[in-house]
Design a protein around this nucleic acid. Structure first.
Lengths: 137, 137
DNA sequence: ACTATTGTACTATAGCAATAGTACAATTTA
DNA sequence: TAAATTGTACTATTGCTATAGTACAATAGT
């Protein structure tokens, strides 16, 4: 599992890290019971503040994703649910990998892909949407 | 074109709005020369602060995406580039639409889809990545 | 027991996001 | 010309993100 904070994306670093850890668990890169690197170690590697990493671990624990044991470290919580999810997400990987490859072939850049993807998710979400259309001239 | 601010996504509202406007132009929903709704109107519709919308328009103008004319309003800049892009993005739409449908069929929720997608983009991006792996026990 | 490691818990600071409110300037419309 | 509309430009406030620095508490390893 890899991580590279995208400082210019507008998404807070701690949110990005949380997402990465969850994704690592979903894909089986991190399995139940396994230990995560120490707060200070992660902070050093990513060149971010230890407090930021601590916040990530704290939040993840609050969500039941990991377990924190003072003096020992952080461990992936062993919930059957996450493990069951893993297979689905792993099966899903080639699907988006293929799609992204096609988008790339069509000449789209990363930003365009992301906007297209988010627009599609919004479409699914539906709910109370507000129209944002050009005015009559 | 539709817009629904996702306050809990961690992404600043003004960034989301900027992305939406760009996407609308890329897909042809907004065409060169067309007028965008007034700042106060958008703010009212989306129930956000006029200053936030003003910031969006200001930033978009700075990027050359739109033109601001005091007293008149905001207009989509007529650069050939955006128009040329439109066809590519439109062609790309069924690709991700199909992919998202498959992910949905696999039982993935929105968050999982987004993480999977972002992970794939990170893979493409490559560059200097920092390993984030479990420690030996 | 001692030491190192790991998470916990503060305070303080700087910057950005978003809101609220007000006033002004340029243009369009009647 | 007068009024309405639209963008511009402030100040002030609140809350969150991220950083820096320090100290403490619990556990593991020797």
């Amino acid at each position: 599992m890899f991580f590279k904070p995208n400082a210019s994306s507008g998404v807070p670093i701690y949110v990005q890290l949380m997402e990465q850890v969850k994704h690592a668990i979903e894909t089986g890169a991190l399995r139940a019971g396994e230990q995560l690197p120490a707060i200070r170690k992660v902070a050093e590697d990513l060149v971010i503040n230890p407090n930021t990493v601590a916040k990530v671990y704290r939040e993840l624990e609050h969500e039941g994703v990991i377990e924190l044991r003072q003096g020992s470290g952080a461990f992936v919580a062993d919930r059957r649910r996450g493990q069951a999810r893993a297979s689905s997400v792993i099966d899903a990987r080639p699907v988006i990998r293929n799609a992204v490859a096609r988008l790339l072939a069509l000449g789209l850049n990363e930003e365009e892909m992301r906007r297209l993807f988010e627009a599609e998710l919004t479409r699914l979400r539906e709910g109370a949407v507000t129209e944002f259309a050009p005015r009559k001239r």
